[in-house]
């Protein structure tokens, strides 16, 4: 039984360490680890539009391969991460981003948690005030004198 437990632990460790090695390219795109890291990070932020619930880092659809090629070439050409993101947005729209930007159209969505919290706070304050007012009034009621 301990043997089985050890095996599971070993497997978990290998999976945890090996995750990085499971990148979809057969060969690393860059010899420079810094560039390779940027390349992988950007790929993980871009949606593959053919297989919409995958990033282009996860997908092996031809479009994802082509988009990875574009990212690789832009990094090699010295483009910044923002320039690469803008390139993708210009062509595929905001949907291509896995981490959406705040725009005029989705502002309400971004603000919704804060607005709901604020609304809840206002409601709580009003209820508490009302109750404390009611509590203050209680001694004046005739029943209060019976005790």
């Amino acid at each position: 039984m301990t043997n089985g437990f050890l095996r599971v632990c070993l497997l978990a460790c290998l999976l945890a360490v090996g995750g990085r090695a499971l990148a979809i390219d057969t060969v690393a795109a860059f010899a420079d680890p810094v560039l390779q890291h940027r390349y992988e990070a950007i790929n993980r932020e871009l949606r593959c539009l053919v297989c919409q619930n995958q990033t282009i880092a996860d997908s092996n659809a031809t479009l994802a391969q082509d988009l990875r090629r574009e990212v690789r070439e832009m990094i090699a050409a010295g483009k910044s991460d923002d320039e690469i993101r803008d390139f993708m947005i210009e062509r595929y729209g905001d949907f291509v981003l896995y981490r959406p930007r705040m725009t005029a159209q989705n502002f309400l969505l971004w603000a919704a948690p804060a607005l709901l919290l604020l609304g809840g706070a206002v409601a709580v304050v009003r209820v508490v005030r009302k109750r404390s007012q009611e509590a203050d009034l209680e001694p004046e009621r005739p029943e209060a004198g019976q005790s």
């Binding site: 539009l49 053919v50 031809t62 479009l63 082509d66 574009e70 062509r91």
Partner: peptide, 13 residues
């Protein structure tokens, strides 16, 4: 053949 023009046009399928 390379799919570059398609990317410029935002073609995905």
């Amino acid at each position: 053949r390379e799919g570059r023009t398609a990317i410029d046009w935002g073609v995905y399928g």
